[in-house]
Write a protein that binds this DNA or RNA. Structure first.
Length: 276
DNA sequence: CCCGGCGCCTGAGGGC
DNA sequence: TGCCCTCAGGCGCCGG
């Protein structure tokens, strides 16, 4: 499931190959994924002939900046991922394909069809809910401890849910939330209001450390994530908590990783060193 | 306003 | 073998 490191990997890949190429054609077999403009015919008209200028990320959103003041926003949701290169026409999970001026393709593969795509005027991007209603990016230089603590100390609920709320902080999903809290030594269900300053410091450091590590490993392919060239990431080999239920905590503290389901999501943690 | 729960989707995996 | 159930979880939406 693409979270910040997976999205960042795709964005870096695409940034290397897309700029200066043009869109020759576009094909789609699941038009529902296109949220804006209204019809696929309009979408097609808006992108054909446009040139790729830049590729960016905001939270889990991929922003592909095109010529003539257009930006493609892509959210990969659970199983979506962008692919660049020669696309296998037999691949039934590919639902959107751009044919590029160099003869290659840019495609969106998505088993579960949750991904969404939209076009926005570049200078109106900030008016989009997807952009304006999300919190700061945890890897941004301006995301300081002061800012982190300031944002979180106002929030209610438990820490793991807070970390996963995009309107508070943008980019963290279930895998990294579990890993961050394992690293920080904080129980996933600890109430935000009960978290002390030193604990906030540990969480802050863990956010930076774990997300950077995820980026370095080119993402987490525990399910079906691939980079823009179809290669797996490596972060799944470094999980300490996520999907480690029943295993010994790698801190060797005698804890056995426990799993608790709440509101559809699994929390994984070590009951020994992650205290409430 | 906030919180919980459901719907969107489909493949994998377990039980029988 | 094959059917059916559950699970995976990002996020929009709805209702209490």
């Amino acid at each position: 499931m693409p979270e910040l490191p997976e999205v960042q990997t795709i964005v870096s890949d695409l940034k290397k190959v897309l700029p200066k190429l043009k869109i020759r054609d576009v094909w789609c077999d699941f038009k529902k994924m296109i949220k804006q403009p209204e019809s696929f015919a309009q979408f097609k008209k808006m992108v054909i002939g446009k040139k790729f200028l830049d590729v960016k990320r905001k939270g889990k959103n991929i922003l592909i900046n095109l010529s003539e003041n257009k930006t493609l926003l892509i959210h990969q949701k659970m199983t979506g991922h962008m692919l660049y290169g020669k696309i296998d026409p037999q691949d039934r999970f590919i639902h959107l394909v751009f044919t590029l001026s160099n003869g290659k393709h840019l495609a969106l593969s998505d088993i579960r069809k949750f991904a969404k795509v939209l076009i926005c005027e570049t200078d109106r991007l900030d008016t989009l809910k997807d952009i304006k209603d999300i919190g700061p990016d945890p890897l941004d230089k301006t995301f300081t401890f002061k800012k982190f603590k300031e944002i979180f100390s106002k929030k209610k609920g438990v820490i793991k849910n807070g970390l996963m709320k995009q309107e508070i902080i943008a980019g963290i999903g279930n895998i990294y939330a579990n890993e961050i809290l394992w690293e920080a030594g904080i129980h996933p269900f600890k109430k935000i209001q009960k978290i002390k300053k030193e604990e906030f410091e540990k969480i802050y450091k863990a956010i930076k450390k774990i997300l950077k590590q995820g980026v370095r490993m080119r993402g987490d392919s525990v399910v079906d994530y691939r980079d823009a060239f179809g290669k797996k990431g490596r972060y799944q080999n470094f999980h300490k908590a996520y999907q480690k239920e029943g295993e010994k905590c790698s801190k060797n503290d005698g804890g056995i990783i426990k799993r608790i389901k709440e509101t559809g999501r699994s929390a994984f943690f070590c009951p020994k060193h992650q205290k409430l």
